[in-house]
Design a protein around this nucleic acid. Structure first.
Length: 272
DNA sequence: AGCTTCGCCTGCTTGC
DNA sequence: TGCAAGCAGGCGAAGC
């Protein structure tokens, strides 16, 4: 489940091998992976990659000639791997896109569940076009507070809403709320008083996770195919029935907004 | 408009 | 052991 730290790790691994490379061919073999409004993938042919940046949970590729940008979202099980020409991955399943570059390098996209997407289009106002809000490092405290004020939805649902705040997914929302001592079902407006600490905890968790190369629960891999290690440092996510690292209480799992939600009933009290 | 639920998709896990 | 149901979840669409 690539969230901000995983995507950031992928992006860091892509920069060096991709920058300055020219696109020789661009093939997207699963047309349903186009996000609505995208221009066709092959228009990228002949263009030279300038920069690779993270945009929320998505990846943005800009080209030297300006014009259209390429946006790739990994969905849940997407892998973007840099491969040499004669890679031994050739038999791997679920290969849906290949960007062939000069120097015998290929950027290959694998995605078993196909929840990811590709989008080619104008780079201006990308947030508006793709419905992606500021990420936790960009948003300022007053803006963050404003986002929660007057909201009745559970804080967890609000933090998962990419239009409001981009980058967080199920793992890091649960981890952030645990660290901030906030029950995931707390209405947004009730959590608004704790926004300063919450934003601080979100940033801390994300920074630590980036340092660990992200969390590899199952499918996630970095651009060189390696795994992250932050899964070993998770405090509530995936720890249902185990003891809380802080107080010894048993970590519980509930379903909130259709998502498996992990929390410590002792450290994260008071939902209403 | 805000909020919730559903469906997409496939592989692994669970239960009979 | 084998098979079907259950589960995982990012995100857009639909429904309330």
């Amino acid at each position: 489940m690539p969230e901000l730290p995983e995507v950031e790790s992928v992006v860091r691994g892509l920069r060096s091998p991709l920058s300055g490379k020219t696109v020789k061919s661009a093939k997207l073999s699963a047309p349903d992976l186009y996000r609505t409004g995208s221009r066709p993938f092959p228009v990228l042919k002949g263009r030279k990659i300038a920069t690779v940046e993270r945009f929320g949970k998505a990846i943005r590729v800009d080209f030297e000639s300006g014009g259209d940008v390429l946006v790739i979202h990994l969905g849940m099980t997407g892998n973007l791997i840099v491969e040499k020409k004669n890679s031994r991955n050739s038999g791997r399943k679920h290969r849906h896109a290949v960007l062939s570059l000069d120097g015998g390098i290929r950027l290959v996209y694998y995605d078993a569940r196909r929840f990811g997407y590709f989008w080619v289009g104008p780079g201006e106002d990308l947030g508006g076009r793709l419905n992606i809000g500021p990420d936790p490092f960009q948003i300022r405290l007053p803006e963050f507070r404003e986002m929660l004020m007057g909201r009745t939805a559970p804080i967890k649902s609000l933090l998962l809403n990419q239009k409001l705040l981009s980058g967080l997914g199920n793992i890091y929302v649960d981890e952030s709320l645990f660290r901030a001592g906030i029950h995931p079902a707390t209405p947004g407006r009730s959590a608004a008083a704790k926004t300063r600490d919450l934003l601080r905890q979100i940033r801390t968790v994300l920074r630590n996770a980036i340092r660990s190369g992200g969390s590899t629960i199952r499918d996630y891999r970095r651009a060189d195919g390696s795994r992250g290690s932050f899964q070993n440092r998770l405090m509530v996510y995936g720890r249902t029935g185990q003891t809380c690292v802080s107080c010894g209480e048993v970590v519980q799992r509930i379903v909130l907004g259709g998502r498996g939600t992990h929390f410590c009933p002792s450290c994260q009290r008071g939902s209403e």
